[in-house]
Amino acid sequence: MNRPHRFRPGQILSHVILLFLAFLFMFPFYVMIVTSVRSPAELFVPEFRWLPESFTGLRYYIQAVADIPALTFLKNGVLISGGILIVQLLTAIPCAYALAKFEFRGRDLLFALVLFSLTVPIQAPALPLFLGLNAIGAIDTYFAAMVPFFLSVFAIFLFRQTFRTYPDEIIQAARLDGMSEWAILWTVVVPGCLPSVAAFSIFSVTAHWNDLYWPMVVIRSNDLMTPPLGLAFFADSESGANYGALMAMATILTAPLMIGFLLAQRHFIRGITMTGVK
């Protein structure tokens, strides 16, 4: 009678479903990793094997770093998604603060505009952006790869929602204590909203690390390629048949995001639930 309800049928069922879904999501990653450490011949045998028959160790990883510039792609990924994130935070946080906490004429209209902009995909302004960048000779630069994303309406929206819940009385206390509005924003409000900043950072970095469309439009040289662009480029050129090296490269290029997410997971989830954007 008093046994803890640990094995209720409903719970068992939901765990079975969750385990199945987890398997479905994890399986491609498993194939990626296992392919990077076995000989490509094993890919084409009729039955699937869980473990490599001939373990190739780090051979393909060394190839990926030596023959394909995987580390360059990694560096480009860090520079571009990092650069985008920093400018996004620097621009969106003050905008969001003004929209959340100041009263001025036209504020609601501006916010409506922000909401409206959320619905515009990057493909829509891509052509004029490309033409403009071409006109100033900026095609095939880091700048071109980053500039369309410097202003993030999603960030403005997200931070506005967060800042609105920040207590007015603390801001007023800071004004009485003699802080400037900038100091209040960066040393009082933002430190109080870090989970939300972390959540947005993960959204942004993931989106731009994995973005293929825009780098494909503006990046030409191998030196500037981002991880997905590099992967796509090398998949159908020189090492097209070298699945081992390709999978090793893919593993290297997805690893930073996976590790980053695992480390920031708690903040991330708190930020999402806190802002109510769920």
Binding site: E169, R175, G178
Partner: peptide, 27 residues
């Protein structure tokens, strides 16, 4: 507000949550 030489105690206390008590009082 800061130039009026007026201090205020708020209903919700309005302490800076990420600072220690010492830092709060020193601000």
């Amino acid at each position: 507000p800061s130039a009026r030489d007026i201090a205020m105690v708020f209903q919700s206390y309005a302490l800076y949550p990420h600072m220690t008590v010492r830092q709060n009082i020193a601000t």
